[in-house]
Design a protein around this nucleic acid. Structure first.
Length: 226
DNA sequence: GCATTAACCACAG
DNA sequence: CTGTGGTTAATGC
């Protein structure tokens, strides 16, 4: 655990400014950095939450328990904030965050965070923009999940990993088929079948969890047409 | 009717 | 954990 030095990175990577000044004093004990191994829970649904978390390094899945099954709400890649909605919006977390890779995160108490919002309009503005972007993405994702067929949803998510997460058409997923199903809103069996189907059609190359997209434009078409 | 989509179950590597 | 086959239900020509 490290203290003190992480709060400046939390504050913002692109707008360097000394937080100690902002907060009117030394910031030790106000921010704590922690490491998480793959699979470890960063925060849990229904638990009391009083921290804003800045993910410095790693990959995280946000999950929520549904009536039928666990739903993966989103995959977030560092650097980003975690838990803004769930910490600001309610006392209790509405979803969990679980590390999918070894990750590093900064925890800042919500009172400090509030002080930052109050004292720094630029910072507040950046936060609002980030929240808005996320909401737009969630809206898009919601419509897609409800209206597209599973083939299209899976294709969309494969593209998402390539474009947003790994910036490459070739990647190894830290998810098993069941988690993929939780992400795409379907059953494990269907994921299995459709992946082999995509592979047979030479749209992707499949080796276990390693995926190589051979025909991105085709995948895009599938994603759009559903 | 018949075809398609997709879930659930079972079972085998 | 994964892939596959059978069965079944819903929906759309």
């Amino acid at each position: 655990m490290k203290e003190n030095q992480c709060i400046n990175c939390f504050y913002h990577s692109d707008k360097s400014k000394n937080l100690s000044d902002e907060l009117g004093g030394p910031v030790s004990h106000q921010c704590v950095q922690a490491n998480f191994k793959k699979g470890e829970i960063i925060f849990k649904e229904n638990a009391l939450s009083s921290n804003i978390i800045y993910l410095q390094k790693g990959l995280v899945k946000l999950t929520k328990e549904g009536v039928q099954r666990t739903q993966i709400l989103n995959i977030r890649k560092a650097p980003c904030y975690l838990g803004l909605p769930t910490t600001m919006g309610d006392k209790v977390n509405h979803y969990s965050a679980i590390a999918m890779e070894d990750s590093t995160a900064c925890f800042v108490d919500i009172s400090i965070f509030r002080r930052l919002l109050n004292t720094n309009p630029n910072f507040s503005y950046d936060i609002i923009v980030e929240l808005c972007k996320n909401e737009l993405l969630q809206f898009d994702r919601c419509v897609k999940m409800v209206q597209n067929q599973i083939y299209g949803r899976l294709a969309g998510n494969l593209l998402f990993f390539a474009e947003e997460i790994y910036n490459s058409n070739e990647y190894t997923l830290p998810f098993n088929r069941n988690e993929l199903a939780d992400l795409v809103c379907t059953s494990r069996e269907t994921i299995s079948r459709l992946l082999t189907e995509l592979s047979e059609d030479k749209i992707i190359n499949l080796k276990g969890k390693h995926i190589k997209i051979l025909n991105p434009s085709m995948l895009r078409k599938i994603s759009e047409k559903g």
